[in-house]
Each structure stands twice: as C-alpha cells, then as structure tokens.
Design a protein around this nucleic acid. Structure first.
Lengths: 279, 279
DNA sequence: CGCTAGGTTGACGCCTTTCAAAGGACGTGG
DNA sequence: CCACGTCCTTTGAAAGGCGTCAACCTAGCG
C-alpha cells in the first residue's frame, strides 16, 4: 500500500475542524489503516442498496449524492468535495439509500467501517467530530430543500454559487474564482430545473455583471451582489460550531468581499402561515 | 413532577425499534429524568439560533421543522410525530438551524441534553439507536428533496400520503384512515406548492377515487393505486435496519393492502445524465 | 351571531419545460 | 493535421403546469 500519511493529516484536519482532538485522538487517527483508491469521472462509488464495509474519505476530486425516481428523473441531493466523508452513515445503517457518483477524477481513502466505528466509540472526541459532520451535512440538505422549494431560478443558482464558494473556502481556501465541477445539466439536477434553464439563468447572472464564466471556471465579480441576489446567510453551515479557528477564518474572508445584504430586511408575509402563539 | 413511566416506555420502544437494547440499557433509559411539557398548536418549540439545553421527545401530537427565506417563503423540511426526537442534534451542535413548531396540541418529554449525551456515550447501543434515528430522518429529508424537485404535484402529494401512512403505522399502527394534522397551505409548504394548488390536486386524487376526505380525515380507498401514482417504494425509510420486528410488521401490513407497482418498470431516460463508467 | 381560519373554485398570467437545431470544445483515429 | 464523433453549451419558439388574484363558502367558537 502506498504511503498515506498525508491522507491521515487531511482527515485529522477535517475532524479538528468539527471538534477539538487532543494529541492522543490524533495519534489514534494516524494508526487507522487507509487504502487509497482512484475513481474516474462518472464512476459509481456507492450504489443504492449496497452494503459497503468501508467508509470513503475524499482526498481529491468531487462527487455527488444522487437519487432517482422510477421514471429516471434525477436529483442531486448533495455535493461532496475534498475532505468530505462519503458513506459515514453505513457505519450504523446497513444499506445505502442513495447513489454516490464521481464528478471528476478522484482519490478516495477507504477506511474499514468497523475500525472507524470502534474509533468513534473509544474516543469520544472523534465520535463527536463525526457526529457533527453528519449533522452539518444534514443542515445543508435542508437548506437545499428550502432553496429548491421556495426560491426562483435566479436565486437558486446564486445561492448555490455562494454555498459552493463558502465550502470551497474550507477545503481549498477562499477565492472568488473557482472551477465548478458540474455540467449545466447536473447543476440543474441539483437545483431542480432543466439544464437549459440553468443556461439561461447563468446568462442572466452574467448579463447582470455578477459573474464571469469561461468554460467551467466561475469568477464572482461582485460577491455582495451575488449574496444579495441569493439573500444568502451562511448560518446553516454552522461555522460557529467549528472547533478550529482556521476554517472559520477562511469563511470570514467573504465578509471582506463586501458587506452582506441586511438580513431580515424584507418580509413579504406579514402574518406567518404557521402562527406565532406561545406555548 | 408528574409520573413519566409511560413516557420512558415509549422512549424505550422507539430506541429498540432502531437498535437492540439489553436489559441494562433499558434500565439506564428508565433512570433518565424526563420533564413533561405541553404545547398548544402553533407554539414554537425551537427557534433558529436557539441554544436549548434539553432534548424533546414527542409523546403525543404533531410538529414540523420549518425554514424560511428572507422574503418569508416557508418550507417545511420535516414532519414530526409521536415518538420522534425534536432536537437531538443540539446534543453536539450548539445552535438550532431551523424552527420547530407544534401543529397540534402536544405533549413533549424534555430530557437534559447532557444526560442524553452521557447516556449515548456510556451505552453504545443507545448511542447507536440515536445515531440511526438521525440517519433515517436524514434519508427522509433527501427523499423529500427528490420528491419536490422531480415529481409533479399529483405524484408529490400521493407520495407524501404514502409516507405519512407508513410512518403513522410505526407510531400508531397501520391503517388506511388517518387524520392529517396539516392545513392545505401547510401541506403546500411541505411539497413546495401553494395551498390552492394542493386543494386542486387533492380534488384530482378524490376524483380518481383514490382517496376520500372529510375535513382533515383522509381515507385511502385504493392503496395500490395511490402507491402507483406516487411510484412509492419505502426503501428510504430503512425498515430493514429496524431492530425490533414489531415496527417492521406494521409496515408489512401495507403489502397486504395491495400489490405494489413493479419497481423499475418505467425508465424514461435510457442513458443516465451521469454515466455509468467503472472506476 | 358575527368573527376568523380554512376550504373551494374560476380566470388569467408567467416562469419553466419541452422540442428543436446549431455552434464550440476536445479527444481519437485516419 | 484534419476529419469526425461525443459531450456540452447556446438560443429560439411554443406549450403547459403552477402561481396569483379574487370571490365565495363552510365550520368552529367566543
């Protein structure tokens, strides 16, 4: 097996960004046996119904979680990037309930589920870090549900771009220029619209001068305008929950890119549909 | 404080439906201090940004998790029913990232987060049960994302009704007749449509003879037809992961209500947008 | 017995999809 | 080095599902 010491450090960095790990915890992680594996674009890493006995940790490249209706309509329910854990939930759940597919060439570190499970149980901080990681991913899915259900095409795309920039800031470093590893059709599968409409909507963002795009490289010309369009607030990413200051610093960079829109400024419904009585 | 022994048994029943608990585990649960609390309809049990130090367990009544955009558009991201844990995630995450609101009158058992956390850590089976519970809820959210994003109004509502019947089967017992504790507008907030369109779509289901409705009481006249409309498969509910046979039996009842549609029968796209190469 | 929340229905309009076709970008093979 | 295929992007025109606006009805309740 190849040397995976760098992979171990990446994993430790990820875990410490979720919860504080002491020296002993980190040593325990280093003792994990990690098997490096490569995937090509479009490879199915996990298939619905699978019972994998390893848990994948993304070293490089991008993947997505997808679900399909019986008629073949696809929905991307999560985007996975370097540092993300692919099928942590199979530590306790027997079967995968969705597919995971590579979007780009990838390097994935496979860890035996049993080992990870023992580690999580023996070392409370590590278990806590994994737990937090799961919960934050859950929060991101709920935000996607809100985004797709209650915002129009322009806002949806703008919101996804904001989220993408924020999450990339954690794994790669903050930047207003990045490669989006999704085709327009896949972006549509994520935002619940057709690829064609994604195209038209991106053009609108371009015409507004908010973004520039050459191929799959996006440049955010006006972060403030983009965040305003999306009415983006990163609360749901739980940045304040993060143990290590490093990750938080990456996010704070975006505040520097421009003052955010004033949260709560506009409220269309005066009376909430679900009212606000006290218990 | 009132006697909560029944509440303890409800909680134990829930946990054993997620993972096997031995006698010692169950005794440990019984030693938990649970404080019963009542809520009226529309009460906000958790508010986004809150830092609650207790975890709520629903004894009776219904609630929902909601998120809102800055313009006041609401999305219900989860429906909570008796047996569900309200804010388990605040055991490890400091802040709530969404609201929880009572839909009906409710009785909620409050458990100190620290106690629950210690219990989960000291007794592996209980931690496992809680973990599984979280993951199944996550799976349900992903299915809702697929449902809202990739199915039309009729399918969406049919699918929600199927899911509702299945989940009620676990907590209350299987039945083709039940009360839906949601107004049509709230049903719309869940399925990402307007209340008005929910009304029209329910009428269509009624005209098709699939359901009958008097007030908020639904009767499924033809389970098979409803499941076919929705193309419903309950895999995502992870019934096979459930430790206790009792819960599974409740679900099997639905098979008796009629043969399900043949899964995978219809496939519109011959070539998946994300192709199927091997690694 | 009036008030309020919720259900029902119609007309109209728009955002998004569908259908269709053509134009790049890139790799492969001749 | 160019032809050619594949995948992706781009754009137009037409159709349709769902939202919006508006009115009326019903039931429960103080």
């Amino acid at each position: 097996m190849t040397d995976t010491s760098e992979v171990h450090e990446l994993l430790i960095a990820r875990l410490t960004s979720r919860a504080m790990l002491d020296e002993e915890d980190q040593e325990a992680v280093r003792r994990l046996s990690i098997h490096l594996r490569g995937y090509r674009p479009h490879a199915r890493i996990v298939r619905e119904g699978d019972r994998p006995n390893t848990c994948g940790f993304i070293v490089s490249g991008f993947a997505c979680r997808t679900k399909m209706t019986a008629t073949g309509e696809r929905q991307i329910v999560a985007l996975l990037m370097p540092g993300d854990l692919i099928n942590l939930q199979q530590i306790v759940l027997p079967r995968a309930d969705h597919d995971v597919q590579a979007l780009t060439s990838m390097q994935v570190g496979d860890i035996a589920s049993t080992h990870l499970q023992e580690l999580a149980q023996d070392r409370a901080s590590i278990g806590r870090a994994l737990w937090i990681d799961t919960l934050i991913e859950g929060s991101i899915v709920r935000e996607l549900l809100l985004n797709n259900g209650r915002r129009d095409a322009l806002q949806r795309l703008a919101h996804q771009l904001c989220e993408f920039a924020h999450r990339l800031a954690m794994s790669v470093g903050p930047s207003l220029s990045f490669d989006l590893p999704l085709t327009q059709e896949q972006l549509g599968d994520m935002t619940a619209m057709t690829g064609i409409h994604v195209n038209r909507t991106l053009k609108k963002l371009r015409d507004l001068g908010i973004i520039t795009r050459t191929g799959r490289t996006f440049v955010i010309n006006d972060w403030q305008a983009l965040a305003r369009q999306a009415m983006f607030t990163p609360n749901y990413l739980h940045l304040d929950a993060i143990g290590a200051a490093s990750a938080r610093a990456a996010h704070d960079a975006f505040s520097g890119f421009g003052v955010r829109w004033a949260p709560g400024a506009v409220l269309r419904r005066t009376v909430p549909a679900i009212k606000n009585d006290q218990a």
